[in-house]
């Protein structure tokens, strides 16, 4: 594998977006790009990552390779990332380490790190990325982040309901309750403020607040978030990158007994 990001912070943002949700991950590299999925220790949150060749300045993968890494270690190396440097990932044919080369031609500087790869035994799950959903919402990730931060303070359970009138996020704590209603809008001056809802039926689902606090760490990937809800599947919270691919979080709901 030889894959070069023209801006090293792209990879840093991707890794930082889920490094607190899961401890380790297998990156599966093929000529169609880098794909990964990992489940958190409590098996409630599934992270999926897709970095297609379009995200790279140059991308080459001669034979399919799996790269297992501890995310805490990789995140430490990526602290060196900045917008002036490129980052090339190298993995040899017989992979036992990942080489990261940061280059800042303007500053005549380069940095090289090596990360030991780890054997991770993890089942790949059959996840249909085009899964049908009853409700799809596209909204500002900044707005979503603020709403999650405000409401999750009040309760460890977070409810989302969507009707024709809009999307309602609500919490019911022991001493306080809160509710945020967001209605569809079109902001011609700033398209990232738009909120759109498409739905075939209403939904009303509850999730554990702590996972939503993990998910919003990915908001730096995109100023938009796509939400997909159905009665009978985990919710999908998806951040898509400008150049294709992105990071998705499938979150299993809580059900009333």
């Amino acid at each position: 594998l030889e894959a070069k990001f023209d801006d090293s912070t792209i990879f840093k943002k991707i890794i930082d977006s889920f490094k607190d949700s899961v401890t380790q991950i297998n990156f599966v590299c093929s000529e169609s790009g880098i794909e990964a999925q990992a489940i958190d220790d409590s098996r409630v949150l599934l992270v999926t990552v897709s970095i297609p060749p379009s995200c790279f300045e140059s991308y080459r993968c001669d034979r399919p390779t799996t790269i297992g890494v501890y995310l805490a270690s990789l995140a430490k190396l990526l602290k060196s990332a900045n917008t002036n440097s490129s980052l090339t990932l190298y993995v040899a044919d017989k992979p036992d380490e990942l080489l990261l080369l940061f280059e800042e031609p303007k500053n005549q500087k380069s940095m090289e790190y090596k990360l030991k790869l780890v054997d991770i035994t993890a089942d790949m799950l059959e996840v249909d990325s085009d899964m049908k959903s009853d409700v799809t919402v596209e909204m500002s990730s900044v707005e979503f982040t603020k709403t999650v931060r405000d409401l999750t303070q009040l309760s460890d359970s977070f409810t989302v309901s969507v009707t024709k009138d809009g999307i309602v996020f609500s919490v019911q704590g022991d001493t306080a309750q809160g509710k945020v209603l967001l209605q569809p809008r079109e902001d011609l001056a700033d398209e990232s403020n738009n909120l759109s809802i498409s739905m075939s039926k209403t939904i009303d689902l509850s999730f554990a607040s702590k996972y939503l606090l993990d998910i919003i760490k990915a908001a730096s990937i995109s100023n938009k978030i796509f939400l997909k809800f159905s009665d009978d599947t985990p919710a999908l919270f998806e951040f898509k990158m400008e150049k294709g691919g992105g990071v998705g979080f499938y979150l299993a709901p809580k059900y009333d007994d």
Binding site: R43, V44, D123, M124, A252, K254, Y255
Partner: peptide
């Protein structure tokens, strides 16, 4: 009372 579902309840292993 509510119970937390698991990802494995919904997705099967490839």
């Amino acid at each position: 009372k509510s119970s937390q579902r698991s990802i494995g309840d919904f997705f099967s292993v490839k």
